[in-house]
Every structure is written in structure tokens, then in C-alpha cells.
Amino acid sequence: MSTLDQTAARRRAFTPNWPARLFFLAFAIYLVYAASRLGFNLERMSYGLEHGQRFLARMFPPSFARSELIISGIVESLQIAIIASFFGIVLALPVGFLAARNLMPVWITWPMRAFVALCRSFHPIIVAIIFVKAIGFGALAGVMALIVASVGFISKLFAEAIEEISLKQVEAVRATGAGFFAVLVMGVLPQVLPRFIGFSTYQLDSNLRNSTMVGIVGGGGIGATLFTAYQRFDFDVVLAILIVIVGMIMVAEIVSGWARRVFQ
């Protein structure tokens, strides 16, 4: 009994975790090495500070002189995001069902999951580059790229949500003699619809953000306007566009938060 007390007293309240400490030490050494490889040094930093000041000075005040260009760009970005989200959601619905392992046999889920992984693994910009090559410059390439991104994201989470449902309700619906589609619509869908709406509105936000970027590689939207202004060194226009983008995304987040509450 007394020995037990002694060991308890000797044990420190916060025992050092040596493997973790070693890991952090190794990580710190790596960070220093990587930072030196990336060009983090005083010279670059002071250069950056000087340039940053000039850059900021040229940005202020923001210039809304070319507001009609900004508006048409933003409208095109919105169109790209809305169309891509719609088709992405519509396609993700069946793909998600087919990838859910509790509903489908393995020989369907496996290729579907590989397809979803492929959609997710490339950044929308890279997909946009491929589509710009295939279908030319313009909004359609951006739409197609964002559809691919949406399918990848929504179907993965949707399939995971379906895999977590309670099978009792499915069984109950099946026991009434319902066919396959009736089981899906009455047994599965009601359980996952709120989450599906959640993923979809989240993806709409994400598409909106990405639709401001696909223009840089020729996929249409405000990105093209932004990139042109940047290349012309019209940094005050760049700042104006950034302000409009941030404002648009804030509004979109409020709207999608409202949509999520409606469907809770």
C-alpha cells in the first residue's frame, strides 16, 4: 500500500510524452530547412516589405471606375456557380447512392468510389485547364470544371451519410412491399435530405469562390477581369474586385445558412 502511494506521488501530473517531443523537434528542424529552401530570409522579407508598401499604396483607394466590367464579371461568376452547383448536385445524387456500401453490391460501389476519388483529386483549376483545351475559352469550361469538383465533394459526403442511416426504417418500408425506388424515396432519402442540403449549400459557396478563380485560366467569370487588371498593374481595380468578391461571398454564406435552417 505504501509503495503504491509513493509511486503515485512520484508520478508527475503531466508526464512528458517523449515520442511527441521527438516528433516536434524533427518537425521544427524540417520547418527551418524547408523555410530556407523556400526563400524565407531577411533579404527577401525586407524586399517584400518595401514592395508590399508600394503595392498597398497603389491599391488604395479602390477604383470602381470600371464598375460595368466588374458587374458583368461577377454576374458571370454567379451564373457559373449556380449552373455548376445544379448539375453537380443532380449528378451527385445517383453517384452517391451507387457509392453507398450499405445499399449497393461491391462491384458497383468500388468503381463509383474510384470515380469520386478521381473527381476529387485534381484541383478545379487543373480540371478547368483541361476543359478550356477541350471546349475552348469561356464560361462553359468553368462550369464543367466546377461540376466535376461538385460531384467529387457532394457524392463522397452523401455516400458517407447514407452509410450512417438507420436500416430499420428501410426495412420497415421494404416490409410494406415497396419497390426499390420507393424504398429509396421513402426510406433512405428522408434520413439524409437535411445533410444533403447542407453539403449542397456548402458546395454552392465553394463553387462561388472557385468561380472567381477559373477565369485566370480562361474559364470565364470575374477571374478574367481580375487577372487582366492585375497584368495591367491596375491594382486599385484589383482591390475593388476583391472587395466585391468578399461582399458577394458574405451574402452567399448568409443565404446558404438560411437555407440550411429551413431544411433542418
Partner: peptide, 13 residues
């Protein structure tokens, strides 16, 4: 919100 709404490519620019 500002950090998230400006895309990585635009931050890079």
C-alpha cells in the same frame, strides 16, 4: 471570411 473568400490563386497573385 476575408481569408476564405479570396481564392488561393488570387492570394498568390
Amino acid at each position: 471570411v476575408t481569408s476564405r473568400s479570396v481564392n488561393s490563386l488570387i492570394w498568390a497573385l
